[in-house]
Simulated scan of single mutants.
Amino acid sequence: MTSRFSRRSFMGTTAAAAFVAASMPRGAFAAGPDFLTIGGGPSGGVFGIVGTAIASMLSQIFPDSIIDVQPGGSGPNLLRVGAGKADLGITSANNALDAWEGRDPATPESPVRNVRGMMTLMQSAIQIWVDARSDIRTLEDLRGKQVSAGQPGQTSWLVFENLLAAAGMTPGDIEANGGKLHPLSWAESQEALSNGQLDAVMWLSLWPHPTILQNETVRPMRTLSFDGAVLEKFLGESGGGFERVTLPAGLFGGQDEPAETVGTNTILFAKADMPDDIAYDIVKQLWENREDLYAAHSLLKHMTEETVGKGMVVPVHPGARKYFEEQDIAVGDSALGT
């Protein structure tokens, strides 16, 4: 396991997560590692909240371990675990596939293949949010509008470019006739959408994201539904790690009809060389106490017996596979590395 850690980071994480050793019998678990580093996300964000919850739960079975949660994100977490600077991380399945194949966030010279899937936590989907009263109904309707899709180089920006290409469009089409594709952060994008400065925000996002629900205190929101032919072209040309998803009517206050889109899974992954017994115990603890995860964030309630072992894209860790098979939980196999 990792042997380097920031004590300042650890102390802050300890206070935030309130690590308290539980009274469960230690004999049921393998001896814990000296250090366990988890790649989460920015403070207050979903990945950060989930990473902290996981750390708190693992401290109950590894009370003598120093558990450190680091800020990161889908790409940075893959790079850190791949480089041996973290033991566990949270990422999106499409990012994991890109890293494996030497695309963003990895370099072609350094594909990240020494990672293994542990469990699927929740699902993200390509979403373009607009005021429910807007006349924007299709990608074509974004021409001449004020739009944000994150910042150049970020996952959402790249996915948006690929989605536009599947529809025969480019960012330049949006910027015709006074439109603009604004390179804004998540917080900036959502604030501008809420106050009417933006007509639309596109993001590869968890659903239903709490920020979008919060925006509805100002204006009703809905997300666009995409043409089936466009989605199939996206999946065929640049959709590795994605699958068709239907977002239900009523997801947002202004969502009167289902929205057809594509999505990817958010997964917990580990170093390939994590001992099998440690990986087994981690998955066992998180799954058997999943109500604690559900309580940490409402988006985790979508993790079920039907989803937890599937859709990780990268090979599943042998320790995780052993646990799932003992519980008769279906495990999705990966063609990578075979």
Rank of each mutant, 00 (worst) to 15 (best):
R4Y: 09
F5T: 02
S6F: 08
S6M: 06
R8I: 13
F10M: 09
F10P: 00
M11L: 15
T14A: 14
F19L: 14
A22K: 11
M24Q: 13
R26N: 08
G27F: 09
A28R: 12
A28E: 13
A28L: 14
A31Q: 13
L36C: 05
G39H: 02
P42G: 14
V46E: 00
I49K: 10
I49H: 01
G51R: 01
A53Q: 02
A55F: 03
I67G: 00
V69N: 02
G72E: 03
P76C: 10
P76S: 13
V81D: 01
A83R: 14
S92I: 03
N95G: 02
R103Y: 13
A106W: 01
E109W: 12
G117L: 01
T120R: 11
L121P: 01
A125M: 04
I126V: 14
I128Q: 00
W129G: 00
A132E: 09
T138F: 06
L139H: 02
E140T: 12
E140N: 12
D141E: 09
V147F: 15
P152V: 11
S156M: 04
W157D: 15
V159A: 15
L164K: 03
A165P: 06
A165Y: 05
A165Q: 11
G168C: 10
M169F: 14
M169L: 15
P171W: 03
G172F: 07
I174T: 08
G179Y: 03
K180E: 11
P183A: 12
L184Q: 02
W186F: 13
A187H: 13
A187D: 14
E188M: 15
E191N: 12
S194P: 00
N195Y: 14
Q197P: 00
D199A: 14
S205W: 00
H209F: 08
P210M: 10
P210A: 11
L213C: 03
Q214Y: 11
T217C: 07
V218F: 10
R219I: 15
L224A: 06
F226V: 13
A229H: 06
A229M: 07
A229N: 09
K233L: 06
F234K: 03
F234T: 00
L235K: 04
E237G: 10
E237S: 14
R244L: 14
T246W: 07
L247M: 08
L251D: 00
L251Y: 02
F252N: 02
G263C: 05
G263A: 06
N265E: 10
N265T: 11
I267K: 01
A272L: 04
A272Q: 12
D273S: 12
P275G: 07
D281K: 06
K284D: 04
K284G: 03
D292W: 05
A296E: 04
S298K: 08
E305Y: 04
V308H: 01
V308K: 01
G309N: 09
P315L: 05
H317K: 12
A320H: 03
K322I: 04
Y323C: 04
T338N: 08
